[in-house]
Amino acid sequence: MRITHLLGLLPSKLGLLGINARNVELIYTNNERKFFPNVDNKLRCKELLSAHGIPVPQTYHAVTGLESLRVWQKALEGVHSFVIKPNRGYGGSGILLVERKGELFQSGSTTLDVEDITFHVQQIFNGAFSRDNVSDTAYFEERIINHPGVDAFIADGVEGVTDVRIIFKGNRPLMAMMRVPTRESDGKANLHQGGLGVGIDLETGLSLNGCHYNKVITHHPETGNPLSGIPIPHFFEMIEYGAGISDIIKLGYIGVDFVCDARHGPLVLEVNARPGLNIQIANEEGLKKRLQ
């Protein structure tokens, strides 16, 4: 008992939340399993949210069977760039950002043809990217264009979307962080692939220091610019939209991922029922402290 107290000293001083405590004290007690599909099924989540007036990116087409697999080209006629996502994907795998290049398509540095895209959709459909590999729906979604307000965080030549993760306990925002794609992360905003997390002051909406993997950073490792003191565009609108989501999807502890689109403003990209813990490093403070 003594040792556990001693070991508990450091985390409790910072009010840090560990995985066990997050699961036992927050997720199991606030998020009922039967409502998990409200967020794990991303299309359902989008429908629920937009029915309550919360803006989400437009869905062009959903492939739910072989019938709809054949018609994707028709459904996407005239759409220049789009994103293909697995409906029950996790950890960002299976997501393909696509741009038209004449008859062909461009995704990052690789050129794809119609067959390649159909194959990817089929892979999703077969459950290659879903939890437990159950058959999944693939959907085509509008591609986000970064709000110019976040350009200061992104190194030149990096293509990718920054998003803002806000953790809510019910309608109360606990902590926020912007996730920034880097050259290292190959345009992905995933923290464990080398993306940056930048803390956000909930009061002022200004950026704080950040994290790179598990390290606290004050400057962008690729541009050398300081990270803190930059206003996050539409941040307070995000807080406002986000505060209502817990009631809509019936989950009490959630991480809401917003993007800030140049044309539409803030949009909810997805909601996470098991939000990660590195947001604490980006904010240099623990979630437990915020919960008090």
Partner: peptide
């Protein structure tokens, strides 16, 4: 163990940069 909500040992390493700043 299922109700254990303490830190996992590896999390001390994960958050070591935060501890260092305390």
């Amino acid at each position: 163990i299922g109700r254990y909500s303490g830190f996992r040992l590896m999390e001390y390493s994960r958050f070591r940069h935060l501890f260092a700043r305390v």
